[in-house]
Write a protein that binds this DNA or RNA. Sequence first.
DNA 1: TTGGCAAATCGAAACATTGCGATATGACGA
DNA 2: TCGTCATATCGCAATGTTTCGATTTGCCAA
Lengths: 114, 114
Amino acid sequence: MPIPRYTRTVSNAELDDLLEVCKALANPTRLQIMGWLRDPSDHFAPQADPMEEVGVCVKQIQEKAGVSQSTASQYMSVLQRADLVESTRIGQWTYYRRNQKRIAALPELLGASL
Amino acid sequence: MPIPRYTRTVSNAELDDLLEVCKALANPTRLQIMGWLRDPSDHFAPQADPMEEVGVCVKQIQEKAGVSQSTASQYMSVLQRADLVESTRIGQWTYYRRNQKRIAALPELLGASL
DNA sequence: TTGGCAAATCGAAACATTGCGATATGACGA
DNA sequence: TCGTCATATCGCAATGTTTCGATTTGCCAA
């Protein structure tokens, strides 16, 4: 029975997870969006539904970021795939907000994987 | 004199800094290397100079990662530009080690910028 | 001083990401 | 039912990243 030459400290799942997070944040606009979503009412104009609860709709993010509608939509789904944001659909709007639980756990993930 | 409509919480310098870190880590092999360098003697074979102090030479990283010499060298300079590793040249070898101070400060940078 | 080793840099091909306009889907109000 | 608005998805050209082999630089020992 062969003994592995060197130890593996970090699980592959955690590493892949962190990798996806880094990829999602490795874009200046997406990184900014995450910051804006921290205090939505400081960065976005009022909207139909209360942004502190449900989040901010794509149109507002698009306007603030100065990108096209399709780009804004794509950005948000990249961030969502990395589990950094959550979304709620209300009527014709999709509201995005930070996944605060996940974000709070990032330092730990960093410490464990990196 | 126009008043900015919304508040900026995060400095551009910090955001750019975090962006560079994310870019550097947004590659599976580079991410792995950072992990290996945490406990070098658990992951690399003995070498001329003591790796816990000076770090690990490029050749060892190259072999462990299974990439070409030029790729390994580039990877290390990407990590160094992001300030995640430091290097020491001894004779014909360049030893790389984690910038532990910087890495310890990452959670704070994350908390401040993201 | 010459040969060999380690590392860095260069140039290029393959591959991935970016970001747009066009189009599709679905909700709402007239 | 129709037109409009918000969002999502598609296809594509431009740009950026990856990764290599070849070349260059620098160090050391014979």
